[in-house]
């Protein structure tokens, strides 16, 4: 049996739907419980907070995990990223008010849920600044004056527009990854690869349509 730690909510739902498409039977509504199985009892799912998925996988409680690449970068996940599941694809962006002269400033204050990625971005772009960690409603940062700009995930850009912010720079693509602990990957290699093949085939079929 393989244990898969899923990031609760939209990511878990989309992943389970992918499995259902590939004929893996999971009772509808199972995901209301924090722990459930597929009908053949070959897969066990545990629903956890996104930030905790790497911990479950790294400590070998779960052989596999399904979580965003943004979380993996912040966690500095040291295991395997086996597959891009193409769920929740978006971009990590630097955004701010249209009037903010970001490139002219020598020092900026950046609010973000992703302090490590933000610090790395500032360092790589040779910019000096302070990073303020916020846990939500990051777009409010420049509006209320807590920061000059923000670094956040942008999908459609609507939230930014609602708060009169624009994308200044796209930092990187973000999407959901299937991750594994190296030992689990090696000791349950066949079962894991079988699952990967089934998931890969979905992508191929979609491309052929």
């Amino acid at each position: 049996m393989l244990t898969i730690a899923l990031s609760k909510g939209r990511v878990a739902n989309a992943f389970l739907e992918k499995l259902r498409v590939r004929g893996i039977a999971i009772e509808p509504g199972s995901e209301k419980s924090l722990q459930f199985y597929d009908s053949s009892m070959q897969l066990k799912f545990i629903l956890v907070k996104a930030d905790d998925v790497p911990t479950y996988v790294q400590s070998a409680v779960a052989e596999l995990g399904v979580v965003g690449s943004d979380v993996l970068k912040e966690y500095e996940f040291d295991g395997y990223e086996l597959l891009d599941l193409k769920i929740g694809s978006c971009k990590l962006c630097l955004a701010g008010p249209a009037t903010h002269a970001y490139y002219e400033k020598t020092w900026v204050t950046v609010a973000s849920k992703y302090p490590k990625s933000t610090e790395l971005f500032l360092k790589n772009s040779g910019k000096l600044g302070t990073v303020i960690k916020l846990n939500g409603s990051v777009e409010l940062g420049p509006v209320v004056g807590i920061s000059d700009v923000i670094v956040d995930l942008v999908e459609s850009g609507r939230t930014l527009r609602d708060n009169n912010l624009i994308v200044i720079e796209e930092i990187e693509d973000v999407s959901t990854r299937l991750i594994s602990n190296p030992v689990a990957y090696k000791t349950k290699f066949e079962a894991i690869n079988l699952l990967i093949e089934r998931l890969r085939n979905i992508e191929k079929e979609i491309l052929h349509v």
Binding site: Q58, S59, A60, P182, K186
Partner: peptide, 8 residues
């Protein structure tokens, strides 16, 4: 060499 119990 990994411990299968802890994955480390």
């Amino acid at each position: 060499i990994y411990s299968v119990d802890t994955g480390k």
